[in-house]
Amino acid sequence: MSESAAAFQIELTVNGHRRAIEVAVHHTLLDVLRDDLGLTGAKECCLVGECGACTVILDGRTVDSCLVLAVEADGSEITTVEGLADERGLGPLQQAFLDKGAVQCGFCIPGQLLSAHALLADNPHPSLPEIQEGLAGNLCRCGCYRQITDAVLATAERAER
């Protein structure tokens, strides 16, 4: 049956770690990641799903975490930018972003990386227009778009066909 309360107990698997946490029902996944779990890689900017700074991967797909209530994510697997590197170091996309000069101020980069990551998971060898379309939901005001798409292309080229 349905539940109804101002606070709600949920379980999330964040970057491979199971987390049980009580959340307010009106708090978004972005609020909970940043304020309750201390994962500040997801950024807060427009809060209307336009800029993509808060992008995370939820059950394999990118979402704007500002437009997902934390309770909706109950039972989900979430990848944030903090989950892209491991003890061996940066992932290939992260390194390509640095090599290609895709990072200026860096504020949009967590979201860009997660969108790129999900795009390549779905489509390992995307065309340039597919990359541009796939990353259009992540605004970069420094205007690194060409370098970002270069980094995604380079990562795809290095991946096995």
């Binding site: 944030t80 940066l90 972003f97 640095l98 090599d99 990072v103 860096g106 980069i109 967590p110």
Partner: peptide
């Protein structure tokens, strides 16, 4: 030369602390 940006690793790992990230 064009080495990787200083501070770049923190920016691609989410570790860079912007003003709103400081607790």
């Amino acid at each position: 030369a064009s080495p990787n940006r200083v501070g770049g690793i923190d920016r691609v790992t989410g570790r860079n602390e912007y003003a709103a990230d400081i607790r």
